[in-house]
Design a protein around this nucleic acid. Sequence first.
DNA 1: ATCGTATTTTAGGCAAACCTAGAAAATCTT
DNA 2: AAGATTTTCTAGGTTTGCCTAAAATACGAT
Lengths: 225, 225
Amino acid sequence: MVEPTMSQPLSSSVGDYLKAVWGLAGHGVAAPKDLSSRLSVSSASVTEMLRRLQELGLVEYERYRGASLTEEGHAEALRLVRRHRLIETFLLEHLGYPWEEVHEEAERLEHAVSDNFTERVAQLLGHPDRDPHGAPIPGADGTLAREDSRPLSGAPVGDRVRILRVGREDAPALAYLEARGLVPGRVLRVEEVRALDGVVTVEDEDGVSHALGGVLAASVLVQGS
Amino acid sequence: MVEPTMSQPLSSSVGDYLKAVWGLAGHGVAAPKDLSSRLSVSSASVTEMLRRLQELGLVEYERYRGASLTEEGHAEALRLVRRHRLIETFLLEHLGYPWEEVHEEAERLEHAVSDNFTERVAQLLGHPDRDPHGAPIPGADGTLAREDSRPLSGAPVGDRVRILRVGREDAPALAYLEARGLVPGRVLRVEEVRALDGVVTVEDEDGVSHALGGVLAASVLVQGS
DNA sequence: ATCGTATTTTAGGCAAACCTAGAAAATCTT
DNA sequence: AAGATTTTCTAGGTTTGCCTAAAATACGAT
Ligand SMILES: [Mn+2]
Ligand SMILES: [Mn+2]
Ligand SMILES: [Mn+2]
Ligand SMILES: [Mn+2]
């Protein structure tokens, strides 16, 4: 089913656009505005690139609407996401990087490593299925495990939940969460979800309470414990 | 003494040009023709880039003669060489890459990794002073150990010598040498250096003889055992 | 010293990614 | 249904890094 158009390797810009479309919309349509702000690039640049990506057969693009990934584009995006997440795991586990620093390095390395490198790292790591932030690592065959989690901000008060994943990649937020032990695997009890301002208060296993703003709480993904 | 012009990071092209000047001439002057063939780039491109490198303060360039590295350019070249050689060592020792495949991967990764990454790898490896091909690894402070070796092609017949380094980076030659165990550390006895065609015959520790063409023998660097 | 060859530079182009400014289209508000 | 606002596209421009073809320079050999 996949076109055999294995021409030249794609540039890092192209790759980052594909990842952005995937991250924003999955199989759906990503709006130029959202791509522009996610990639920190002018909307003129987005328009231009989307046209090129369509030319390359990587997205389906409709003017004034946005772009969705073709099968080929989707496969390429997932391949990059796999690399990114494996590299993050490697940096943390083998090079001793702090949790909040792995993302930036991976963002560059994902474009420079070969498939050979990627698979050797996967093997070294024992083929993990989640990265240090709890995000699932796509398989080498392009499959991605279904996610079964809800944002902490929508958890019922009183519930015991386990952090499955942290859907953030900016260093300050990650450093803050790690300092409080709010990392994947941690079990919490939901004390309060305040309607007024969205602040969520939780108690961790050591009896310590943490209050998280609505936006931050929404990026902490949990599953019923 | 080093200018504090720590502006934006240099591109991989710029880095590869600097490494090429260094590899061809060290502190001396590298000719455009040699850069052109080493980098597989037209001479017009070389002229253009040398002008830019001068503009950036990385080389001193004289028309129709070539370019030599400034202090800053030299430092940058050595920094890349350090990365390259550490990465090669890491690929071999920790990811199980075959000897002849490490160079190509390192050639790309050297431009994508951070100093942080590099120094963490150095630590993981125990701060090695030679890479898998026997080439010395520059220190983080920009120092490079003096080399005390001679080409095998110029060794006196009858001498016992130890391979210190293999000055080649193309996969076929490396694969050939490794298949015969002609790698750094191996001790050989020089049986014949034929004036006629430069072919060098050596006997290894297991009593096996090897005949190497003049060009290949010149790239095998040895020291008196 | 001059000729012929090799090397280097110049001139002119091209593609990838970015940008700003302004026009056009879509969407939200009243 | 306008009008105002937001979003997107178009037009035109820049930088980096490469190219080919042709002119200029340097060098080696008679
Ligand atoms: Mn990440
Ligand atoms: Mn990236
Ligand atoms: Mn190498
Ligand atoms: Mn390189």
